[in-house]
Nucleic acid binder design. Sequence first.
DNA 1: GCAAAAGTGTTAGGAGTACACCCATGC
DNA 2: GCATGGGTGTACTCCTAACACTTTTGC
Lengths: 240, 240
Amino acid sequence: MLTSVIKTLIIVIGDDMNVKDKLYKNQGIHVITAIFTVEQGITKVLLVKRKNEPFKGDWILTGGALHNDEDLIDGAKREIYEKTGIKDIEVEQFGVFGALHRSPVMRMIAIAYIGVIDSNRVKILRETLRTSNADWFAIDKVPPLGYDHNEILASALMELQNKIISSNILKSLFPGDFSLPELQKVYEAILDKKLDRRNFRKKMLSLNLIDDTGDTAKFEGKKPAKQYRFKNEIESKKIF
Amino acid sequence: MLTSVIKTLIIVIGDDMNVKDKLYKNQGIHVITAIFTVEQGITKVLLVKRKNEPFKGDWILTGGALHNDEDLIDGAKREIYEKTGIKDIEVEQFGVFGALHRSPVMRMIAIAYIGVIDSNRVKILRETLRTSNADWFAIDKVPPLGYDHNEILASALMELQNKIISSNILKSLFPGDFSLPELQKVYEAILDKKLDRRNFRKKMLSLNLIDDTGDTAKFEGKKPAKQYRFKNEIESKKIF
DNA sequence: GCAAAAGTGTTAGGAGTACACCCATGC
DNA sequence: GCATGGGTGTACTCCTAACACTTTTGC
């Protein structure tokens, strides 16, 4: 133990920052991701139950400590994989949380990410998640979370609203074919307001982001709806 | 030295993050601020010359290592004060830089801030800054900087353009009275494009952010210009 | 045939943009 | 009196928001 500590000290000597100064000691970095989905018009977030102290038994967002050999975003993805088994998820950074005592143990700064998962993957993942103590919570039914994760989640939700009107995060929610009413339902769930069907269609079609597949399929209504899919390369455009 | 190290280890035992695991050791947090001003239509950034290794002799943005007893934003302000003598500056966080080897010595994550200073304070500060090895650089004449600060600065400039069209950062640039042509010049410098005089005036007046002082004063032209000032409480509004 | 959701066009108001002439002052 | 920048109004375009009826299907 002590030899590794001494090695540490040797590595650090020479930096402008003096490791002996306790002003700087024992800082760490959390990478935290709020993973959202929309099912049946309900916006949901993925939470994990903590198995260890601190906050043992509490629900928290997915995340953990950054490793020294990985970039931030890779750390966020690794934590998601380790805690929930989810792979191949795209995440976008949206904030930093560094309040003095956000971790009761040592000084931790949290770099916060947003991810989204389409509802088909939600169904497939449901069993996997159950065994790893993870579950989806409707965003208006989230319990008090460990650490400052309620604060991070509130901020993530605001940011999700911003991102969905100006980025390609949507494509992650609809990797396959979809109808415009379906897409509109997701917008309405996330933005928490009703939109006009005609104006929504007009705007989506005018943005040149989606292709008509020629197919139709039933969604909620009785009349089959035209199917669309996102173009392969979509630019990030402001929608509302 | 060793006793302090042992104390550290004891403090950390019990966290979910095991300090003995070198995956997590020796992480630190930089707080970096890009401080801008506009003088005579030129956007400038404040740089400081490093006195120590690494990057000794290189120019960098103001900043340094976060202390354990301060919030992020306070750390950013403290670093500004220590490195340049500037007090009473408002800063806004805009990004995170965490590439693996951005510091050659140990794993450092940088939390990046933007600040602005009005040109009157620039004049007052000029001597102070000189003695502390700090100077203003026109943004198109910035030398290669230490660390990843060129990257941070490029990102800060983009963010400055976003902020100036949607936030009250302007008030920091014009704490006192100003004329609309003066204000317009600053916009044009930061956004790097010409604006129409009539439309600019129309928009600024319609936003209800500024008051007519009733005074006039000369700026660049021969005809005295009406003076305005920002209202005490201004909301963050989108301008362009 | 009727309930339920999908599809479609038009119009009015607001915001943005483009543009030209007169005004006050210094020299 | 003329050069320099400051101040003002109008018209066109585009985007947004509001709004109602017809179509397809399941039952």
